[in-house]
Design a protein around this nucleic acid. Structure first.
Length: 334
DNA sequence: ACTCTGAATCAAGACGTA
DNA sequence: CTAATTGATTCAGAGT
DNA sequence: TACGTCC
């Protein structure tokens, strides 16, 4: 996911919604955390060896990676001692809306692999090696086991972890979503915390984004905000050439909705990608309807997309409500 | 001149000790 | 049956 | 704060 340039846009256009604070001001708060992303960062960052050698991940005797264990363990301990109660949320199946983007990533991955085999210098080997890292099912299971043993609540999301985190926050089960990914705002998490980390020499303060102030500052409704994000470019759709954050905001402000924006665009100037689905945004409450404005559309894809976005929307709130409640209670006990 | 986009590139944790 | 991340920064070039 | 270590 990731909305291109959203942080910068919020900073420029809705300054009130971002503030910075010390870690200590969050004691007593429950925070939902996207576990997969954390694991990924740990595996990339926690390495041994230094100058002159390609850095290596930590492993056990069988050669299995243990970097993520170190990372999760330390960070969780730190949170607990600081009075912050984490709830780790693990990814479920990714929506197939993403398949296009995923295919691109696969391609880049393969490229990295072949470059790695051809690489001579240590730097290159390291660079391409990192590009190949990924979080496997096993890494997630390791982390879940560890967290359960530590008495820290774990939630298995039906789909994307970010969406589930936002649901937890909206339901009041947790106070905020702790992530580096601005996508959580599209799922209406009331509060979003970034840089919730604990480096000894803490580099930067925690960054707190307030959802309500964000859309108020931009002067948009929730639907318009989601439309803005789609126009800016997210993982689910291609972008329109020539439209970035600034013009996207202007367009949504003046036309009110993405449908009107597309309708009023000069088609000679701006090429709207084929098969652009107006309603198929990642937001839980967005209506998955309305046909595409694209000319020679690929009907097959459009249909399957629609199907899937509906699954995304209906699954999280209901099927997980009980699990959520149980886990939240556990958090209280601890 | 100025603004914006878009492609490419990079970096990514936390501890204890000196 | 398998996949599975992002944001910040910088710079070139197009558009206004 | 810089640096080596975590497996």
């Amino acid at each position: 996911m990731g909305i291109k340039g959203l942080t910068k846009l919020l900073n420029d256009e809705a300054p009130g919604c971002i503030k910075e604070a010390e870690l200590s001001s969050y004691t007593g708060r429950k925070v939902a955390i996207d576990a997969s992303m954390a694991l990924y960062q740990f595996i990339i960052a926690i390495r041994s060896g230094s100058e002159g050698f390609a850095a290596q991940v930590l492993t056990n005797e069988q050669g299995e990676i243990t970097s993520h264990i170190q990372g999760i363990f330390n960070r969780t301990i730190r949170m607990l001692t600081n009075g912050i109660k984490p709830v780790y949320v693990f990814d479920g199946k990714p929506p197939t809306l993403k398949s296009g983007e995923l295919a691109k990533r696969m391609a880049r991955r393969q490229e990295a692999q072949s470059k790695l085999e051809a690489a001579e210098s240590v730097e290159d080997k390291e660079k391409y090696g990192k590009r190949l890292t990924r979080v496997t099912r096993k890494h997630s299971e390791d982390a879940m086991k560890l967290l359960r043993l530590m008495g820290v609540p774990v939630v298995q999301a039906p789909c994307e972890a970010e969406a589930q985190c936002a649901e937890l926050a909206r339901a009041g089960k947790v106070w905020a979503t702790g992530t580096e990914d601005m996508d959580a705002l599209c799922f209406r998490t009331p509060k979003l915390l970034r840089r919730l980390t604990f480096g000894a020499a803490n580099k930067q303060p925690v960054m707190e984004v307030d959802y309500q102030k964000a859309i108020d500052g931009l002067g948009l409704t929730y639907e318009q905000f989601v439309d803005l994000c789609i126009l800016c470019g997210c993982d689910y759709t291609d972008t329109i050439k020539g439209i970035g954050p600034k013009t996207a905001l202007k367009l949504v402000r003046t036309h009110g909705s993405i449908a009107n924006v597309v309708r009023s665009l000069d088609k000679k100037k701006y090429q709207v990608p084929a098969g652009w689905i107006k309603g198929s945004n990642p937001a839980p409450s967005a209506k998955p309807d309305e046909a595409t404005e694209g000319e020679d559309g690929l009907e097959g894809e459009g249909a399957s997309n629609k199907e899937n976005s509906e699954k995304n929307e209906s699954a999280p709130p209901e099927s997980d409500e009980k699990k959520k409640a149980e886990d939240a209670e556990k958090a209280d006990d601890a």
